[in-house]
Amino acid sequence: MNEAYVQVKAFGVSESGTYFFRIDWKPITFKVTDDSGEPIIGATVSITGPLSASALSNEVGLATFRLYKPGAYTVNVRFKGVDVAALQLGTITDDTLIVKCKVYRVSWLVTDAWDKPLSGAEIIVKNGDAVIDRAFTSDGGTTPVIQIPAGQFVVQGTYKRVTSSRVENIDASGIRKLKLDVLFEIPLFGGIPVTTLETAFAGATLGGGTLAAAMIRKSRASHVEEVVLEE
């Protein structure tokens, strides 16, 4: 029974009657963090039980609820379309509960065919057809750190006109490397990347059908990269 009996006395004398009490329910707060303990912004925290509610985690990873019905609750955290944490709450508490999620801090190093970092390359992470995040590489060829939920995703790297995609299993934080088939760039209109296949085709066409090697070297006199095709 959700009832309570209250006896009111004044100078030892009981008085019967109807009394109203105002109960100030304290909020319950969840702090959602990634695998490294950093707050997750924009995660959906859902609670189901005697009451159901949901809220987005704020800029410090907090989501707050006022549950005025005691009981057992199930808490679920979803981030970028993926379930990343679940727990059972047996009692209501006013302490901040930390929920560590299966979310990792990942960045990508994008290089050309010679392992030279590529700046201005775009990394797109897809879950099916949905884009869950994207980032661009800096001068050192690396993207900023982004939070990615655990799971398998399609990672697409693009540098100007060259694109490559692959499936990656995200299960730990760290730097991942993506090599694009950029053999060299023609210094026109800001640089036109040329792939290995295109170089081989050009060599076969210009060299009479046989391409022994394709290499890039720097001229000591001009310091300009040039392509040398040898038959």
Rank of each mutant, 00 (worst) to 15 (best):
Ala10Ile: 12
Glu15Ala: 15
Ser16Tyr: 11
Gly17Asp: 10
Tyr19Gly: 00
Phe20Ser: 13
Phe20Met: 07
Arg22Ile: 07
Asp24Met: 02
Lys26Pro: 02
Thr29Gly: 01
Lys31Phe: 04
Val32Leu: 03
Glu38Val: 03
Ile41Thr: 08
Gly42Asn: 13
Thr48Glu: 09
Pro50Gly: 11
Gly61Pro: 01
Gly61Ile: 00
Ala63Asp: 04
Thr64Met: 08
Gly71Tyr: 06
Tyr73Ile: 03
Thr74His: 03
Thr74Leu: 00
Asn76Gly: 03
Asn76Phe: 02
Asn76Glu: 11
Phe79Gly: 00
Phe79Thr: 00
Val82Ser: 08
Leu87Val: 03
Gln88Thr: 11
Gln88His: 12
Ile92Arg: 12
Asp94Glu: 14
Leu97Val: 15
Ile98Gln: 11
Ile98Ala: 04
Arg105Phe: 01
Thr111Lys: 09
Trp114Gly: 06
Trp114Cys: 04
Lys116Gly: 07
Gly120Trp: 02
Asp133Asn: 13
Thr137Asn: 01
Ser138Val: 01
Val145Pro: 02
Ala150Phe: 04
Gln152Ser: 15
Phe153Tyr: 15
Val154Met: 13
Val155Asn: 09
Thr158Val: 14
Thr163Leu: 02
Val167Met: 14
Asn169Cys: 04
Ile170Phe: 13
Asp171Trp: 01
Ile175Lys: 14
Leu180Trp: 14
Leu183Asn: 05
Pro187Gln: 07
Leu188His: 04
Leu197Pro: 01
Glu198Asn: 04
Thr199Asn: 07
Ala202Asn: 03
Ala202Phe: 05
Leu206Gly: 08
Gly208Cys: 06
Gly208Phe: 03
Leu211Gly: 00
Ala212Glu: 12
Met215Phe: 14
Ser222Asp: 09
Val224Ala: 15
Glu226Trp: 06
